[in-house]
Design a protein around this nucleic acid. Structure first.
Lengths: 334, 334
DNA sequence: TTGAAAGCGCTAACAA
DNA sequence: TTGTTAGCGCTTTCAA
């Protein structure tokens, strides 16, 4: 077997030789510095800097069977909620010496399985999935991988752990918000993903229960866009009537609906009350600022990270389910 | 040495034993199927499925010295341009069997070094960096890693390869766009990151050259927000005068500026012409739709991926610099 | 086309 | 506290 070493590769043995210690001592300086005398550590560290040694985590991971990597699958990052979530998740992991590895499923459930397989090949120490609905093959692979799993942004019975909220309950709450204010005609625009549809379901069910009239409930392609909100509102115009109430599954749809309504002379909130979802900056800083449902996405990321870390550090063994609260933020559109 | 094997771990040796072949043959079925007879491949594949074998890429990577992973560092994903870029980059890599590993530098240059070190520890086969300015330590590490490097979203002399555009030239072009339309009073709102500042520099220089009056050029915190655009416009109000022209380093700033201007009775574009940057959906779908500068972010991702892949596959050895065009999209705000 | 041997660079386990 | 030995699970290399 010839020399298979790559160019420029300083290895732990090189550092050890230069410092006059065993490779294992170098490893300890890096990973468990308190098991080494201060003198030794200082000497080794100097050599590490001098040689520009960057430990090979691939080799370390193979040996220790810990990759210090946590896989995360979210539908998209083109959405402020997932952006905030990923930021906070990453940050929380970083503090504990773990790195997040992100993959996007693009709202295509069939793609999740393929992604999970690819990610498990890299032997993550844990995995984060969005939503609580997963295929049988995915569940099977996760069970065999025997790693902590946290599902987020949803409610239900988790594979392992879950931190999220109840989308149907949000739909119900928004319907009640409008009902209390005397609305009798309702519409809902929702993207075609499982969670947006759950919000729509809750909204429609509560409206029906109260004897309200549902004047429209179109499903738009995920991910949501402003243009889709405008188009849906345009189609709704003929049914609008007086004092209608509209719930949109995304602030982008809500913004589009408001822009289009005003372009057609419909007063918001006088002629049409609008509530979005997601609490994007757009909703607070546009004119009129509009009502929306806020969920602490960053908190979900932090909670998910700390649940996984607790499990990895052996602090927690039980299943955990964390329900994160939501809140309707009232602004000028209702 | 005891058994260090984890629970549920099916290894290549297990598959080989069950299929009655050598481990190496299983490896060939997975990685180079054309070097194996169809019969053998079919037999082995059946066992792989039956046992639910997921190859350990960590072990494979250590042995082959190829991780099939490409690291990417971008400032943020809370920005449609980087979102589009990451999507297209990931997709292009996936087709070639590579996976992207994303890290966020958060517009903090000093953090890049730390990220690069952490990422290099995982031995990526190549790396993508945003911008063309990097610290000495970073450059040193990259040189020693001896892997292909592509820098994006900027112009200049690359470490290795580059695909981007000239930010100063964009500022100049926008200034000329306004000059041609007879504006004599100018303002520019820019985020405090290197590239936004370069656009601002180009704009201000061209305005000065033409003898125009610069009535304001505030720097706002990165990443840009709608609220920052509103605040900056409010501060600018006293200097506004007639037919001023405003260039914003982000469409979010531009949107905020327009909202605030209208709230104060300033007509857009009559009293103030506004041009953004980034071509977010917001600019096309809000009312009034506003003028912006568009750059094909998705194309940058694709080009970057294909340059790296070409290098990895030994197709290309030379340095590559790709300039991606930009274009001013004229809408109702100018 | 298939197999056997060797080792990628690191750390767990045990010994001193 | 430090060192030695034996792998982690795979692929390279070489041989049949």
């Amino acid at each position: 077997m010839g020399n298979r070493r790559g160019a420029g590769g300083v290895r732990i043995a090189d550092v050890a030789a230069a410092a006059g210690v065993a490779p294992m001592t170098v490893s300890r300086v890096i990973n468990t510095p308190d098991r080494v005398t201060a003198d030794t550590a200082a000497k080794v560290r100097a050599v590490i800097v001098r040689l520009g040694y960057v430990p090979n985590l691939i080799a370390g991971g193979l040996s220790s069977r810990r990759s210090r990597m946590i896989a995360a699958i979210v539908p998209t990052i083109a959405h402020p909620m997932f952006t905030a979530l990923f930021d906070s998740f990453t940050e929380a992991l970083r503090g504990a010496g773990y790195q997040a590895m992100l993959s996007l499923s693009g709202y295509a459930p069939e793609r999740e399985e393929e992604l999970v397989r690819a990610l498990l090949g890299r032997r993550p120490d844990a995995i984060l999935l969005t939503g609580a609905e997963h295929g049988a093959a995915t569940r099977q692979m996760l069970a065999e991988a025997a790693i902590p799993v946290v599902e987020i942004f949803d409610a239900g019975k988790p594979i392992d752990m879950l931190v999220g909220f109840d989308h149907e309950a949000i739909g119900v709450a928004v319907a009640e918000y409008f009902l209390v204010r005397g609305h009798a005609r309702f519409a809902v625009f929702a993207a075609g993903d499982a969670r947006a549809l759950a919000r729509r379901r809750g909204f429609a069910a509560r409206v029906a229960l109260a004897g309200g009239v549902l004047i429209g409930d179109p499903i738009v392609a995920a991910p949501s866009t402003i243009a889709a909100g405008r188009a849906a509102l345009r189609a709704l115009l003929p049914m609008l009537g007086e004092r209608a109430a509209l719930f949109c599954s995304s602030d982008l749809l809500a913004f589009g609906a408001i822009v289009e309504a005003r372009a057609h002379g419909v007063d918001v909130p006088g002629g049409l009350g609008v509530c979005g979802f997601g609490d994007f900056e757009l909703g607070a800083a546009s004119e009129p600022a509009f009502t929306t449902v806020t969920v602490e996405a960053a908190r979900i990321g932090r909670e998910a990270a700390s649940m996984l870390l607790a499990r990895l550090q052996g602090t927690a063994v039980e299943r955990g389910v964390v329900q994160v609260p939501f809140r309707i933020v009232e602004r000028a559109s209702t």
